[in-house]
Design a protein around this nucleic acid. Structure first.
Lengths: 190, 190
DNA sequence: TTGATTTTTTAACAAATGATAAAGGAAAAG
DNA sequence: CTTTTCCTTTATCATTTGTTAAAAAATCAA
């Protein structure tokens, strides 16, 4: 039986759950290692797994007019999933790709959602997790709605200082909603 | 005792709850009518009420560099709240203003969150509600990230055809992330 | 209704970003 | 180590959007 220590420490920081619930949750989780560049989840399939990044780095991405767009990054000690598919059951237009050799813990969502019925505290834990993610998304809207690309770039660097060392600029550009050329120009100007 | 029929029909469409839970929920809700132009919730206070729009129209807004920015609209038969404050407990930089004479049903969040403990189905109902809202927000990010202002305007009109008749263009412009002048230019060009 | 206020449009110019192409660097593969 | 591939920068020009100001149109209040 795996321990998944990092994951449960992460959970404890959000909403402590009973030993029983922990055990039930632990039972459905699985660990996996994957190399840089691989797709953890491919475009077109319904999202049925939430991943915790134990080590490494992942991103969600999709194609818009043939261009590769990064929707989000997930560093160590955070969760990643294709939420719009997870909650609707629709196939996702997005994929999850690893930007570094990574170790992940997968949480199968059908099993997780089943646990909600018996373990009220697990439902509450994940409610809190997604509420926080929702708030972050709202703040990101504000950023996209009324900050210049330069402001968004500076904000991103101050929030994730190590992003630059670990993520190709082209992904950062699309995440910010601008072209790579435009980001390069902004960087030159600073 | 008020009935709040519209609200409970709305709830039923998302996740049916027991008669007991309905009664408990009904007890904490209150109805109020407010005229056009009034602030339902003012900037600077922590969000402690979720509102259901029974009749009328509301918007959430904030000030960015002195400019009035609309974050969202809420028509009849939908909920409105300042989520980033509701879930964090932080004072909100945003306000809720009525764009028409409206009838609303208020749901006090501290009382609501208390009900979660006794009424699992109420927690689940609101989890679902906010999960859906989260998905909508994710889709809006995609729209802001990689659609032109003209595309966003057309999309908005096709989603909410009656928006134009009920909302001043300046609010629509800031909602789309552009200036009023820019929106006017786009409209002229179509 | 009339006058005042607010909203919307138009115009001219400035600034930011996109598109394309080409060159320079860095990283990966053999 | 060398070659190939991918990533990043630079340059040029086109397009979009912002800014400011003023006029036109619509709405509101007395």
């Amino acid at each position: 039986m795996e321990e998944h220590t990092g994951l449960f420490k992460f959970f404890d920081g959000i909403h402590p759950i009973s030993a029983k619930s922990k055990e039930a949750l632990r039972k459905i989780c699985f660990e996996l290692a994957m190399p840089k560049g691989k797709d953890l989840q491919s475009i077109g399939h319904t999202c049925k797994t939430i991943y915790y990044v134990e080590k490494g780095l992942a991103r969600t991405y999709y194609y818009k007019d043939g261009n590769d767009i990064t929707e989000s990054f997930a560093f160590e000690n955070s969760l990643i999933a294709r939420v719009e598919s997870l909650f609707t059951g629709n196939p996702s237009k997005k994929g999850i790709q690893l930007l570094e050799d990574s170790i992940l813990i997968g949480i199968p969502s059908p099993e997780l959602f089943n646990l909600y019925d018996q373990h009220h505290d697990i439902e509450r834990l994940f409610r809190r997790i997604f509420e926080s993610a929702y708030v972050e998304t709202i703040n990101r809207i504000e950023s996209l709605q009324f900050h210049t690309a330069e402001e968004r770039y500076k904000d991103l660097l101050s929030t994730s200082p190590n992003l630059l060392q670990r993520v190709p600029l082209k992904h950062i550009a699309s995440y910010l909603g601008i072209t790579q050329v435009s980001l390069s120009r902004i960087r030159a100007q600073i």
